[in-house]
Design a protein around this nucleic acid. Structure first.
Lengths: 248, 248
DNA sequence: CGGGGTTTTGAAGGGGGTCAACCATGGTGG
DNA sequence: CCACCATGGTTGACCCCCTTCAAAACCCCG
């Protein structure tokens, strides 16, 4: 590992070595020379305001994106204009891996709050990955994880009740915050209830009703966008215990 | 039992260049020298009988597998013993891409009929992919497609009615048969109704009821395992037209 | 303070799950 | 060759979870 403390390093840390995320998105052991090459490929930290789009569905595909700060929502628009939320991305996570095999983006990506995003041009990345085996390996891993994640989501959406889906979502959000060394018990909800419902295949009303139920059960609490999880284990129990709860 | 491609001289084609699938699973332009290297990596055509397992959940992960003939079902087993079907794989398709980032397989894989399967040791493949850029590129594409496929599945399972899910499944099966240059209108259903239902998040009874409904509507027909699609466009219409059908 | 979007709450109705029974099919052994 | 049984598939009745429709409450910012 190289030295992390450099006198010239600023809050604007304009390369992967000094990214405040540590190596969350690129946790690979690369030499400093290789890291330099990676920096030539990755364009650091473009900023998007709330509501700004990183890319639109059917735009020509060129790059994947890593979230540096803030949060991003991806969604598709069907021919009848219906919006379908396909994912939420937090710092350290990578967007558009599902578009790699297409020449156009398969979804829109919009900032849910002021966010900073690094661009990873795929062509250059592939060239570099041929030269740095560990980088190739890492991208295989990343994509494989993405496959597993989507597959687990599919299973959850097909088998679990509304209650289980929502609990599972908050458990996942909690876990993702912990990964970033933030509190798994208290965090800001980046998306609206409607987005949550849309993503989970539930009506907004159902989401709302369940959140009040969770609150009454002492599991968690959402005031506006401020989430407080009182009983993480209890939430996890809701996810797995298929419909065993009595609603007295 | 009456499989078309079966018993004749397929055992002789012991390399990718002469595989009767053409380049369905490895549609890359590689030189003959490179193809030879690929053959050194890929172990051709091990045969599994109906019910045989290619791998089990939690086995040490070493390889992905390409289906050469037959059909494979993947499924997970939860701690309470429930089986969850996660995928069906036909000739030219690749299994276990979701386990690449794990040291153990995340699901079981079992042959639904007598099947032949090529083994692709991942470590060797990664080494080769570093040397052959088009191979690396192809695997990125493959995995990206897998991500997109799972994500589409998730959306379908979360938003579509039972009718739409099942219609969508048969449209997909039809497409996959067409890809293999087989009839998109007439094929053998490799899996049981229960597997279909489990995969789609439906009760067996629902699958059965819908199939008889589709038959009454003149859309398609399933006698035992023999599928005949009478009105492919009609089926596609069922998938997209969210709940517009009148059930007279 | 007022307006629009978001969230919550209530009532009603349907899609699909569950339970239960019946039927079809094919493999097996006498 | 057929009786037998096991597995898989079909059909019916009932009921509950979740969606839909409707409206009130809330909240954030101008």
């Amino acid at each position: 590992m190289g030295q992390r403390i450099a006198s010239t390093a600023t809050a604007l840390s304009n390369d992967c070595a000094h990214c405040n995320l540590g190596k969350l998105c690129m946790p690979i052991a690369v030499s400093s020379e290789e890291l330099e090459q990676l920096n030539d490929v990755i364009q650091q930290g473009r900023v998007f305001d709330r509501g700004d789009h990183i890319f639109y569905q059917d735009d020509a595909f060129t790059s994947c994106f890593a979230v540096k700060s803030g949060s991003i929502k991806t969604y598709t628009v069907s021919e009848d204009g219906e919006e379908q939320v396909t994912g939420f991305y937090l710092p350290g996570e990578i967007l558009a891996l599902d578009s790699v095999s297409m020449d156009r983006y398969t979804s829109c990506a919009v900032a849910l709050e002021r966010s900073s995003v690094c661009e990873i041009p795929l062509e250059k990345l592939e060239q570099l990955a041929s030269v740095i085996p560990s980088l190739q390996h890492h991208f295989f891993q990343l994509m494989s994880q993405e496959i597993r994640g989507s597959r687990e989501l599919a299973v959850m959406l097909s088998r679990n009740s509304a209650e289980e889906r929502l609990a599972s979502m908050f458990v996942a959000l909690s876990k993702r915050n912990e990964r970033r060394h933030l509190s798994p018990y208290q965090f800001r909800l980046p998306m609206a209830r409607a987005d949550l419902g849309n993503y989970l295949g539930l009506a907004v009303e159902t989401v709302s009703r369940l959140l009040t139920r969770f609150a009454k059960q002492g599991l968690m609490d959402v005031r506006g966008r401020e989430v407080t999880i009182h009983d993480l284990e209890g939430l996890k129990a809701v996810v797995t215990h298929q419909t065993e709860c009595r609603h007295a």
